[in-house]
Computed example of a mutant assay.
Amino acid sequence: MAHIQESVEVNVVPAVAYEYWTRYDAFPEFLEGVVSVTRVDDTTTHWVVAVHGEQREFDTHVIERRPGELIHWRSDGALGGEGTLLFEPVQSRSAAFREALHGATGEHGGVAPADTHTRITARLSWEDKTRAEHFGAAFGTDSRKVKKDLRHFREYVEKRRVDAATTDAV
């Protein structure tokens, strides 16, 4: 059984990060190898992915969902496994600096109070059935791919946040 745990900090609050992550039809924009994701019902999505030059399909079933906090799912088919995404609020470095500089008294002299970022932690496990899957897990290729996908998600969300703020200001 292969296991991965990777994290990334995103410059949005957990509710926003969670909302963007649950837009399954957008997954091909930031998850490498994902061709499409289609919502079947409230807890099931159908995935088409390209893996090692082959197209594969499978269904994923959400086992537990806590908006803004957690998504836990199990997949069946050729790419069976399970995973959890945790969305945790963390204080941004600039907010931590402002708090250290001005104290926790609330006296910020016009500086905004502490804002939050989100630490997204992905925990994945699956049976590595093929030789390529076994080597991918053993040599860290899968872990690097998950880390890269999380960074792409961060870029995806933060760009849309900036675009939305720009549009709202016009």
Rank of each mutant, 00 (worst) to 15 (best):
A2V: 02
I4Q: 00
Q5Y: 09
S7W: 01
S7T: 08
E9C: 14
V12P: 06
V13H: 04
P14K: 03
A17Y: 15
A17E: 11
Y18R: 07
E19L: 14
E19Y: 12
D25N: 11
D25A: 13
L31W: 08
V34L: 00
V34I: 10
V34F: 04
T38F: 01
V40L: 10
D41A: 13
T44G: 06
H46E: 08
V48Y: 09
H52I: 07
E54M: 12
E54N: 12
Q55F: 12
E57M: 00
F58G: 02
E64L: 04
R65N: 03
R65K: 07
P67E: 07
P67A: 00
G68T: 02
G68D: 05
S75G: 00
A78P: 01
L79P: 00
L79M: 05
G80Q: 11
G80M: 07
G81D: 05
E82F: 07
G83I: 12
F87E: 06
F87V: 06
F87C: 02
E88S: 13
P89K: 13
V90D: 02
Q91M: 15
R93T: 14
R93K: 14
S94I: 06
A95V: 06
A95L: 02
F97I: 09
R98K: 05
E99D: 10
E99M: 08
E99Q: 07
L101N: 12
H102D: 13
T105H: 08
E107L: 07
G109D: 13
V111S: 04
A112H: 03
A112M: 02
A112W: 01
A112T: 01
D115Q: 12
D115F: 04
T116R: 07
T118L: 06
R119A: 05
I120N: 00
A122Q: 06
R123K: 10
W126P: 04
A132R: 00
E133I: 03
A137N: 07
F139K: 02
G140D: 11
T141G: 15
T141N: 09
D142N: 15
D142E: 14
S143N: 09
R144M: 10
K145Q: 12
K148R: 12
K148T: 15
K148E: 13
K148P: 08
H152A: 15
R154Y: 09
Y156T: 05
V157N: 01
A164D: 15
A164W: 13
T166Q: 15
T166C: 14
T167N: 10
T167M: 07
D168G: 11
A169D: 15
A169I: 11
A169V: 12
A169L: 14
V170N: 15
